[in-house]
Design a protein around this nucleic acid. Structure first.
Lengths: 209, 209
DNA sequence: ACAAAAGTGTTTAGGTTACACCCATGA
DNA sequence: TCATGGGTGTAACCTAAACACTTTTGT
């Protein structure tokens, strides 16, 4: 960096955050880092960091994810909103552009990096004392997940490439979608060819992309 | 302003934009300003401007709307996304947080102000040569409107306080929602008491809030 | 009077909910 | 054995879409 940088009018900082969800066959997990530095050193936080001047917003989210957790290219990434209440960051006015991402299964190769002392897959509802307003962002992301589970891409991004009816049932249960019947879901997607049964393996399905 | 302001790392500018929709009984109109200053002086643009350091994002959107068009407090405001491609603003890296707003009817008291030479209600599909990436933002806002019209709050925010079946039909037609039948819509909302028929005026309805 | 546009009835298909019942599991 | 939780069949309900037909409107 070659700073300092001088502007005529004050500018907020801009960060990106990325809530990553994965399904382990039992429940939904989310990826958190433990912050190495102040503010909130030692607290859990959603992966994220400063936007650089020459990269797109989504690229920044992916870069930060990679730097802080080692995770590469989620199956699906979507922006869910900008958070910018004055005071959300003690270092000064900060706007954070929040995203959700989905990866297929709990990648075991996550590791801390950069500002992250370590990175772990935690149950989103168990994590306490999140940094900044990350509780709020997480809540919104969970809401997104709960309603997003009606979208086939979201479901298929969460499930393993090959899955059983039981996996689907477990997934619906895990996100708290009520009375979603796996049998009906499969029946209907088979009809419209969103998924198909794997040749020679009755009861095993795969999504079509 | 007391600038200059100096930071260790470069920071983008942050703006807010607000696409305002209104329904005039015939079609959807959207509020645009004609820019007074460069860049894009003389071009139409979505109302918006710089976020100040001590106001919330939504407050900034409302303030800019007021300053540039004279319009006060839309019935409904919602954030629709952050736009931040490098190069979207020739003045330098700028992140814009886009919103949609709905007002009830075409307020005739709109006037230009600030950076706005004037403000007018235009048909969104007719406007050409929008500033910045406002075409893209407008397109997303229209998309939001088209799908949002299934949400009762959105419909009721667009319609006058008292409305007829014909108004509803015209509205559905205006946003391009296909095969939405006003008779069925009303029937169903009456049942669940989202709207009610006005006493003594058969065929006149009003929303319940 | 005619053509185009809007309104209306009917039917079909699909999804959602609720309920009843079965089966497996584990205390 | 009993209680529990999940799976599964059935029926009621609602909504969306398609279609045909009528009514209205403008020229």
């Amino acid at each position: 960096m070659s700073g300092p940088y001088t502007y005529k009018y004050p500018r907020p900082m801009v960060t990106v955050d990325l809530v990553v969800f994965a399904f382990d066959g039992q429940g939904i997990r989310s990826l958190f880092i433990r912050r190495k530095n102040d503010p909130f050193a030692g607290h859990w936080a959603i992966p994220g960091g400063y936007l650089e001047m020459d990269e797109s917003i989504e690229a920044a989210a992916l870069r930060e994810l990679k730097e802080e957790t080692g995770l590469d290219s989620p199956v699906l990434v979507e922006q869910i909103g900008a958070y910018g209440d004055p005071g959300r960051d003690p270092r000064g006015r900060t706007i954070s552009i929040a995203h959700v991402g989905i990866v297929r299964g709990l990648s075991s190769k996550v590791r801390g990096g950069d500002d992250a002392e370590n990175a772990s897959w935690l149950e989103p509802n168990e994590v306490k004392g999140l940094a900044f307003d990350h509780e709020q962002i997480l809540a919104r992301a969970q809401e997104w997940l709960k309603t997003g589970v009606r979208r086939d891409e979201v479901v298929l991004a969460l499930l393993p490439k090959l899955f059983l009816k039981g996996d689907l049932g477990a997934l619906f249960r895990a996100v708290g979608a009520k009375s979603m019947r796996a049998d009906r879901w499969i029946e209907s997607r088979l009809r419209e060819e969103t998924i198909e049964e794997v040749e020679g393996s009755p009861g095993v399905y795969k999504g079509n992309f």
